[in-house]
Design a protein around this nucleic acid. Structure first.
Lengths: 335, 335
DNA sequence: TATGCTACGGAAAGCACTTTCCGTACGCGA
DNA sequence: TCGCGTACGGAAAGTGCTTTCCGTAGCATA
């Protein structure tokens, strides 16, 4: 049967470049895609010119295949529209860009099943590293499967880095959530608040639990014991913060301060307070964690604990055990 | 010379799976990675079990290589921390996830040179499509080089999709910027504003120019001619909005309304007004474009034109000419 | 001139899959 | 029983690049 074969394949290959330049495949490879071996200047120039003339573009999958892996970083986040993760991703991309690497990204939508799925997808890509930026939940049903995948990935020579989740047995970039909580509690107590209310987010979320624990510690130390009924569970997003706050207002809680376990929720709470006509900060103070970008524009201002998110994202995955924890009331207009 | 070779490679290959299952490579491939050919049920089960037992993970680069390309989408954005792009990216990822595709992302930081670079990187990955979500500038120095790369990519069988930039000769998802501008102008004129001021962003930015043109048209129609000195250029980010507004206030401009060419700038302007103690909206109204997520929390409220960003990101790149333009005052608390 | 290096080009063997092409076994109708 | 068609397994070629290994030219030194 007759097959129609294009005179030249649509995209030129390295072979075409080599032929055009009058050198061997090996030389073309060495000249174009850096190698330990040197190539004489005139051959190099010929190859580069030929590549330019043909509009050659390296076939990255083929290259990754031949090299047995790529240099990319696979970043797994919960939600890219959440400024928290956006900041981390931005840091990772900036860093990757300057290293000439590529960042692949996967979104879990806070669903452990999808997280596991993303890790499987990540592994298939044979990246240099998989970076997990979500957060563990407490009864962690997918943990075993997740560790299985990640261990296999490391066994194959990959690196695993966990950002902000210390319960994973890999290199990590960690935040001192409990410490931040203590600091924040101390700071607001110092400002004179005496009847705090905590929007604790989902009870299963590791990060939320740690922050609450830190807050409780800190308030305790300041002589303000935080009883269980002052800690209210709920969702982790902006709307969850708004809804929870609205419910609390409707129920008529007494408080002079609301501390949300993240800024996104605090911003939601602020909306509920605004709607209810509760003056901030005179009738109620609002505080949160993360110091995400939009927090700057929260009006009235939010008290928040700064986290080095971009920095976390850009931390070299090859100096893995670099644990950095930062706390303090960075952005705080009121701290 | 003696070479040490691992008894088994760290990561099992399809060959190992085939051997373990007692079938041929071809059969294992067909059973694991869907193909037109069917495999008898019992062989299929054997292969799946073997893969599970060995912890097999498909080598995606090798697969992409053998298939001559991947199904991934490469998305080029200016800045993922900008909610505008985050929304587009989220849409793209959601869509890709449900199609079983992967989204690769590159950030240009609004630098045309880096954009060109990202497109080159993108092309190397041999994705199914390259999606450009930035915005053209007017004297567009890198245009020729960019088109060269993109044309070559299409010649090799890839798709190119431009989001929100109509001046590129490829499939596009477009927004009617001028139309939105007209609508917004009409809406605010209807609210009684008579002395508008426009924060026009960078003069070279296509999208900004179109919005300004639309605004001018709309105000003209409403009997409010917009003279050149009422249109102020500047940067395109939040801080730029704040700085420009601050300068204007310092210079003592008279106005009852500021329209920024995007919400991010409007939010910055709001900060400047708050700082200066100018009451919004009583002494000055503020309006913007995009209706990004944080705009909801702008206090006082912002008048904004909604753009279907997530939808744009998730629009099927294979129904390329789908041009969708939406306008109207979606979110507007004050429209 | 002979000898030993170094520098560099090229042939060829992978790398882990997909896919074509062939061969065989089996079922069915005549 | 034969012939034919279908279903499916397997061998092998192909995909574009890297890298090892070999060979040779050119240079410096004796």
């Amino acid at each position: 049967m007759l097959r129609i074969v294009p005179a030249r394949p649509a995209t030129p290959t390295l072979y075409d470049v080599a032929r055009e330049a009058g050198v061997s495949l090996a030389t073309a490879s060495r000249a174009l895609n850096g190698s330990a071996r040197r190539v004489r200047e005139d051959s190099r120039v010929k190859v580069l010119a030929a590549a330019e003339r043909l509009g050659y573009s390296t076939n990255a999958p083929a290259q990754a295949f031949a090299r047995g892996g790529s240099t990319s970083i696979f970043l797994v986040v919960s939600d890219i529209t959440d400024p928290f993760f956006a900041a981390i991703a931005a840091g990772a991309m900036r860093r990757a860009g300057s290293d000439g690497r590529l960042v692949l990204m996967g979104v879990t939508e806070r669903d452990p099943a999808r997280e596991l799925d993303m890790v499987r997808t990540a592994r298939r890509q044979r990246p240099a590293a998989i970076v997990l930026a979500g957060s563990r939940r407490h009864p962690d049903r997918t943990r075993a499967a997740l560790l299985g995948e990640l261990d296999a990935f490391e066994a194959g020579g990959g690196r695993v880095v966990a950002i902000g989740q210390d319960s994973l047995p890999y290199a990590r970039v960690s935040f001192d959530h409990a410490g931040s909580g203590r600091d924040l509690a101390a700071a607001v107590a110092g400002l004179g608040y005496r009847r705090p209310l905590v929007l604790a987010g989902p009870a299963e979320l590791q990060i939320a639990r740690e922050r609450v624990r830190g807050l409780a510690d800190g308030f305790e130390t300041a002589g303000i014991p935080l009883s269980g009924d002052r800690v209210v569970s709920g969702g982790f997003g902006r709307d969850d913060g708004e809804a929870t706050m609205r419910d609390l207002l409707r129920a008529g809680v007494e408080a002079d301060l609301v501390v949300a376990v993240n800024d996104v929720m605090a911003i939601g709470a602020l909306a509920a307070l605004r709607e209810a006509g509760v003056g901030v900060p005179d009738r109620m103070g609002v505080a949160g964690f993360d110091d995400i970008a939009p927090s700057r524009d929260a009006a009235p201002a939010l008290t928040t604990v700064r986290l080095p998110l971009e920095e976390a994202g850009s931390t070299r995955s090859s100096s893995p055990s670099a644990t950095r924890s930062t706390r303090g009331c960075g952005s705080a207009r009121r701290c």
